[in-house]
Design a protein around this nucleic acid. Structure first.
Lengths: 330, 330
DNA sequence: CGCGTTTACGTCGTTCGTAACGATA
DNA sequence: TATCGTTACGAACGACGTAAACGCG
């Protein structure tokens, strides 16, 4: 068993059992991977993949276990490398962030821009994914950092640092009946119109649905998208009333009427999630400091060491996020 | 970085920084280890050991971290190998048990003998150590299993399975004043005589000392040993009154008078401690089933998966440990 | 017929052991 | 002087890439 074999193994798994694709990703040739895989299987004495003809068809049950172990092995090897790179003050590296489209588009840019000026040799890789996949990406080692939002408790499966809190906004095109309301919006008002919101509100446990169901209402969700820009587009097209994150409404969206919904929908918290036992490169700490400036660097280090959540300083609201970091944006 | 390099690295650390000794243990040559170590250091870009002249003098601060990571890497690689060996129904293997002399001498033999008849090709390796070291051995991966006793809570740092409970006995030579007592023994009686007991009772937190100090007494400990046989020998020689585990007094010790001490000293629990996330070979589960027959095999598997202690069935007392397994002894 | 995997083969790099050297106590 | 680590060298192994063959859709 060699580290190369394990690396090839997870590359094949991550490439969807396509050896040729996996070979490209690890900068090696396809026969090389095939051979190493076979050797590993020979040494272990059982098949890691089920073959259908010549192709790989599925991961064996035993293969699942081996894969999981292999991932932690490679993770720890990566940790050793990070440790070394930190000691060496190595400026190059990469930062893979798994997150939602909303965060990537509206919340992360300033912090990433700031990071880029400080560490121009660090290549940032944003991996947009659906909520459920984000933490899986993190745990599988395909991301160094996850940025994800919840309504209540922090996400489990990693070390969660609270970044900021935010509210949802209701947006309607000018001239829409709701836009002309003189009184505060109610859930009944909303339930009377088709809604346009995020894909995640399709899930029955979504906080949007639950807010309605708590008072016996059933929202009519006309359409969902993963992307706030799409939501805004369809709201403009008159498809319905938009429900989206306040970060997603920018200064130039003057044609949309923004209706506060703090009194209707619970606040969300956006979390930075790190793998347990991960050694972070210096620039990752720098990024965290930019993205969540209210967190003391030592608090972050402690959270990583203790591997247990602790009491954090008050989490700022999105609107309160201070100017200095914002002005760094290119 | 290769697995070989990491294996050599921890071998050198475990050999007390003696490369020659480490080379023997990994069945390789000394120049080979030297070279691999240097290559690893070159790749990481810093020294793992501080050199004094040509010899290794200490582990670098960074080296400590790398060592810890390397151990978990090798542990996971071992887990993969165990997984494979289990699937293959491999009968060969080794079982390294870190434990105290008392357990090794009086509690483990029947279970080990039973294991040996079932799995003659498994070589059992007993590693006697002092209490504090035992769990360290386990966590460093130098043992597969720890057997250790506590008075109260289970030991932390691994998954603890309760094996059995036991009491301490007071032993005195025939003719000793205490041996002639007609009434139950008191702590005052004991405090009046020099005691001979285990090394662990030297520690101020030892349950023996605390039992005395709770009533304002200070025992006079004449001598300690790690070894019950030594304690018995010195009790016979008249050095003092012995305080030892009930398992240590056997049928042939007719010349010693045994005085119950349940009412004076708290009961002890002996635990089987496993590493978290360890893949156990089949024969280890078999051994556990022999040594702690009251534990359901599925409970053990669950405890390993959940990694959290749960409620165990009633833990038997040493005297109640059933006959069937005892009769298997060779 | 194209895509993807396996097989075959030649080259290169690396590891490993032996042997000699060097330093340290 | 004995012990332990380093350097040097040669042999053998193993990994890798190229090229061709094989199956499958």
């Amino acid at each position: 068993m060699t580290l190369t074999q394990l690396r090839y193994l997870v590359a094949i798994a991550d490439a969807g059992l396509n050896i040729t694709l996996a070979a490209e990703r690890v900068h090696a040739t396809q026969p090389g991977l095939s051979k190493q895989l076979r050797q590993l299987e020979d040494e272990l004495g059982f098949l890691l993949f089920v073959r259908k003809g010549k192709s790989l068809d599925a991961v064996t049950h035993a293969g699942q276990h081996v894969l999981a172990r292999a991932r932690t092995v490679l993770g720890e090897v990566g940790n050793i490398r990070s440790l070394a790179a930190n000691l060496r003050n190595e400026a190059r590296g990469e930062l893979r962030i798994a997150t939602t489209h909303t965060q990537a588009r509206f919340a992360l840019p300033t912090a990433i821009a700031a990071l880029n000026t400080l560490y121009p040799e660090v290549s940032v890789h944003l991996q947009p994914a659906r909520d459920a996949e984000i933490l899986a990406q993190l745990e599988a080692g395909r991301a160094d950092l996850a940025v994800i939002s919840t309504v209540g408790a922090p996400p489990s499966g990693g070390i969660a640092l609270p970044a900021y809190r935010w509210q949802r906004l209701i947006v309607a095109p000018q001239g829409h009946p709701l836009a002309a309301l003189k009184r505060p919006l109610t859930l009944d008002d909303l339930a009377a119109h088709p809604l346009v919101s995020y894909d995640s509100s399709r899930r029955p446990e979504s906080s949007l649905r639950r807010a309605f169901e708590a008072v016996g209402l059933h929202p009519q969700i006309a359409m969902t998208a993963g992307d706030a820009d799409l939501i805004k587009t369809y709201v403009r097209a008159g498809l319905g009333v938009g429900v989206l994150a306040e970060m997603a409404l920018q200064a130039e969206d003057t044609d949309l009427r923004r209706l506060p919904a703090e009194h209707l929908l619970p606040a969300c918290t956006t979390w930075l999630v790190l793998r347990r036992d991960a050694v972070l490169r210096e620039y990752v700490l720098e990024f965290i400091a930019r993205f969540a400036p209210h967190l003391d660097r030592r608090d972050v280090a402690r959270a990583l060491a203790d591997a247990e959540p602790r009491d954090w300083p008050a989490v700022p609201h999105w609107r309160e996020r201070s100017g200095p970091t914002l002005s760094v944006a290119a």
